[in-house]
Simulated scan of single mutants.
Amino acid sequence: MSFDNASPETHRLLAWANYAFLLAMMAVIALILIAAAVMQYAFGELPCPLCLLQRVAMLGICFGILLQFRNGFSYQNTGISIGFALFLLIVAERQTLLDIYPRPGHAYIGSAVFGLHMPVWSIIIALVVLIAFALKLAILGGDRRLETTTVSTFPRLAVAATAVGAIVVALAVLNFGSVIVQCGINECHTMGYQLLGYTQPAS
Rank of each mutant, 00 (worst) to 15 (best):
L130Y: 07
H117M: 04
A172I: 02
K136A: 12
I61Q: 11
A161C: 08
A6F: 08
A20D: 14
A30P: 08
L196F: 13
Y75I: 05
T199H: 12
G165K: 02
T150D: 14
V91M: 08
G197F: 02
Y75W: 15
L195R: 13
A202Q: 14
R94F: 10
V181L: 15
L53P: 00
E147Q: 15
G142Y: 10
A170D: 06
P49Q: 09
C188K: 07
E9H: 05
V113M: 11
L196S: 12
R70W: 11
E187F: 08
E147A: 13
N77P: 03
G72W: 01
L137C: 07
V164S: 06
I167S: 06
L98Y: 07
R12K: 13
L22H: 11
A27Y: 00
W16Q: 14
L53A: 08
Y193H: 13
N71G: 00
Q95H: 06
A30H: 02
V179P: 02
F87M: 12
A163I: 15
P102C: 04
G142S: 05
S122E: 08
A24K: 06
H106K: 13
L171R: 03
E147H: 00
L157Q: 09
L22F: 01
L174K: 05
G83A: 06
I123N: 06
A30T: 04
G72F: 00
G60A: 06
V179G: 02
Q95A: 09
F114W: 14
Y108P: 09
C51E: 10
F69H: 02
A166V: 02
A170C: 12
Q40K: 13
L146Y: 00
V56R: 00
G165R: 03
I124P: 02
